[in-house]
């Protein structure tokens, strides 16, 4: 590989580091799916209403016509990279029953809360991030957080508050009719807290896991992206539909399934997956270093 090709690889790797956080994509996807379901429901309902109308209009009932009940028709339509990452800030108020389900450190230090057992970012959810700089708040509503100038943006049942404390902080509440009020109340409760640190459960070639999610301290999943390869350590066995091919990895019997290699080691499943198979996947799994006593006590905990 020549210098230009090496530079291309490095440039693309650098671009990959700027991958946006999945939260907005997942939220938008959720909103669109909901809208789609509603549309299907409305079309079905309208279709039913049309059939009912036709029936009562006399196409089928003809001489046995009786006027439709207006209330019935209306009712039918009205339904509806560091070992220890300092988060530096912590909320002191959360919606009732919310527990922490995700911590990410790849781009902006991020923490996610939601109802116990819920998938991170599923509605309702609360996300707090420390941003690297002030986002474009053009068109946002002006607000106030602990005497500091803040900006609020409401989109449907989601609201985002951004303000500049020592760092730029962002609170997003999704899936609540009073999202604006909740987001502002959480923002008001955020305080600097040097004790809130996070120790990723594994490292690979000097880089630490960039995301950990789970529902309990003993049920979690962590991952690290390395170019197009995703390396994962989890308490649960990854999805490996048969047939699987046996191979040796980390000195143990592991499995290869398509472009995924996985092995159970010390009670944890270590795996690497990519869009194309290469022996590098085995090498990477071999190189994964598990932290002794992973810091997962925060998973499933509220305040």
């Amino acid at each position: 590989m020549n210098d230009t090709e090496q530079l291309i690889k490095e440039a693309l790797g650098r671009l990959a580091e700027r991958t946006p956080h999945p939260g907005p994509t997942l939220n938008a996807l959720r909103r669109k799916r909901k809208r789609q379901r509603n549309n299907i429901f409305l079309i079905a309902t309208a279709g039913m209403a049309a059939v009912v109308t036709l029936i009562f209009a006399g196409v089928i009932a003809s001489d046995r016509y009786t006027p439709p009940n207006a209330n019935d028709a209306a009712a039918a339509l009205v339904q509806d990279n560091g070992k220890s990452v300092a988060f530096k800030y912590a909320p002191h108020w959360l919606p009732s029953g919310f527990v922490e389900s995700l911590r990410a450190t790849n781009v902006s230090p991020t923490r996610v809360w939601g109802p116990a057992g819920a998938t991170p970012y599923s509605n309702p959810s609360l996300v707090i991030r420390a941003l690297g700089g002030m986002p474009d708040t053009h068109g946002w509503e002006s607000a106030n957080v602990r005497g500091l100038e803040a900006w609020v943006q409401v989109r449907g049942d989601a609201a985002t508050v951004v303000w500049k404390a020592q760092d730029v902080l962002e609170v997003t509440m999704s899936g609540a009719s009073d999202a604006r009020e909740v987001a502002l109340r959480v923002a008001e409760s955020v305080r600097a807290d040097a004790k809130i640190t996070h120790e990723p459960p594994f490292k690979l070639e000097g880089r630490y896991a960039e995301l950990v999610r789970g529902t309990a301290p003993d049920r979690w999943h962590s991952s690290l992206g390395r170019n197009s390869i995703s390396v994962q350590v989890a308490t649960d066995r990854p999805e490996l539909p048969a047939p699987n091919e046996a191979l040796t990895v980390r000195g143990k019997q592991g499995v290869r399934n398509g472009n995924t290699v996985a092995v159970q080691d010390g009670g944890l499943w270590i795996s690497a997956t990519s869009s194309a198979w290469s022996d590098e996947l085995i090498e990477l799994v071999n190189k994964v270093e598990i932290a002794g006593g992973p810091d997962t006590g925060w998973i499933g905990k509220g305040l």
């Binding site: 693309l12 671009l15 990959a16 700027r18 991958t19 946006p20 999945p22 907005p24 994509t25 997942l26 938008a28 995301l211 991952s223 992206g225 197009s228 995703s230 869009s275």
Partner: peptide, 19 residues
């Protein structure tokens, strides 16, 4: 979702478009 976003970001050179 994260691997797909990462691939799309590299492909499009634009995180907004990637999303």
């Amino acid at each position: 979702v994260t691997p797909l976003l990462r691939y799309a970001t590299v492909l499009t050179c634009d995180p907004h478009l990637a999303q």
